[in-house]
Amino acid sequence: MEDKNQENIENKDINQENKDNNQDTTSPEYDPNVNQDELIMAQEKQIAEEIKAKTAMVGTLESLSSLEKEYSHDPVYSSKVVTLMPKFSNVRRTRPDGNCFLRGFIFAYLEYCIHHREELSRFKKYLEGSKEELFEMGFPKFTTEDFHDMFMEVVSDLEGSGSVERVEAVCNDAGTSDYLVVYLRLLISAHLQKNAEFFSCFIEGGRTVEEFCKQEVEPMYRECDHLHIVALTSALGVGVRVMYLDRGEGATVLSHDFPEDKDPIIHLLYRPGHYDILYKA
């Protein structure tokens, strides 16, 4: 809200200038009768709709060479893709809507689980216990339960008839997929708040851990940062390796394991601002 407020104030300043300049009609004018928040939200909505129309929430399995083609005119990126090629064979793209890390994570994890039933049972047990913990921490019971129950339904269903096709369907069904993402966000928020003393030193802008969770973790479409990833992987005890494709010098691709002491079972590809799923060769 403060950002929006800031924009309102800025607009007011422009309006003031207009008056000073004897009505310069080319500058945007601030109309106090227009609800600025709604204008901003309408624009954000339009951008989101365009992304939605273009990409599936979780795409189909593609060969890594599709990345090579994508960067054929970009020497920095293409040399790094070449570095990745012997280690990884495939990529699955996720929708860049701010939920990409979580969507990529849960897809890759559920896919791992259908091939590793003991992990699926472990995860189910964890999920069962997580509900009470969230209630104890003060998350609203009525709605939290709804998200939790949907997650349990998905996991139970996979126990019975787990297949990659089923995971694909679940993660691309708007209602179900978003509910999974919401619940993961609640788990992250809970883990950060439970360990607030530790995490507080990593939070920028003088915010408390609780404020950070309310602004950056619980709302949908808010991008996941290192902190979110550390919290989620530690809370679930699931190892994730992120491969970083960026403008850094040379052909080396840096990687990082979350949490540091866990063997990774999920591999994600990071490009500035976005995560996709990688498959080992």
């Binding site: 929006k4 407020n5 609800n35 919401v182």
Partner: peptide
């Protein structure tokens, strides 16, 4: 509250959480 009745409240904008329901 704006002249058109619109409300400037953080939970209806950037602090919205899917855990809020109509009652909240």
């Amino acid at each position: 509250v704006y002249a058109d009745g619109g409300i400037c409240l953080d939970i209806l904008q950037n602090r919205w959480s899917p855990t809020y329901d109509v009652a909240a």
